[in-house]
Design a binder for these strands. Sequence first.
DNA 1: TACCAGGTAAAAA
DNA 2: TTTTTACATGGT
Length: 312
Amino acid sequence: MAMTGMTACHRALRMKRQLDMPCQRVTVRAREPFDLQLSLAGADSFFPIQRSAKALEMAIDVDGTSAVITIRQLRAHSSIHATATPDIGRLLLRRTTKWLVSSDLDLGPFYRLVSGHPVMGPVASSLKGLKPLRPATLFEMAVIAITEQQLSLAAAFHIRGRLVRRFGKPIGPQWRFPLPDELARASLRALTSCGLSRRKAEYIRELAARVGDGSLDLDALTRQSDSQIREQLLALRGFGDWSVKYILSRGFGRPDVLPSEDVGLRRVIGHYVARGRTLSPSQMDRALAAFKPFRGLAAYYLAVHWRLRCPK
DNA sequence: TACCAGGTAAAAA
DNA sequence: TTTTTACATGGT
């Protein structure tokens, strides 16, 4: 009977060997300035991300192999070093690392644009090197968007935690987010038991099925324009204007995209320009118009500044 | 205890 | 066509 398949014990032993395997290490030059610790703190100010004490430490799936990627920076504004356990190859490790830390994002033009601005200038100076970190995949980003529709970030965070532990996979110390196929196979009952509404469970399962069977290739969209991506995401059930902008901004890393309807951003921007009063979507558009083509990035800076530098 | 929270699709008018 | 409603959980 042992001939027919691996027992759980064998699988555990194999994973242990894989995790113990010496792993490849690559050095990536992120566009300067970049401060990984600050970027981790910025991400953490919304909800805890996968990390160890001083490193981004994320479980991912690469072509069917699960691995933990660890990304460190010895000191701010120096090169970053990434390892994968088990080894996934230098090319994939480099590509994944660059994706996770938005390494191609050039903050220089943004800083120059805002340098003389009475509000954004000091905010950007105090957060020099801050980059928005990305979820491991666009599929995960899309699921994040669905879970965060209407609910508080805290509620959505807990719901995703239950999704990950029910349908994802533990890799070393971290959990890998569920793959499209794993969510496409899930029953609606199992999904709703994680705290999703029935509707959201349907949205996620439909999305997972499309991504899983290849009829929707999110990665291929990265080469398309904002409006082309927008058109294709809006065609999916469960993705309205807010979700599309949220995904364009956080997942595709488009620095000018601003979810003007976003109640969290309207509130936080209001703290800076309207004495704490929540802005209307059009007021928010006006408040950030001067920062084109970095309106979304400017909003991120203000949101992180509010959370890190203005406690309570 | 209510009410609101980083919306959306579908039902009702 | 436009307006209203149902929906999930967590924090205050």
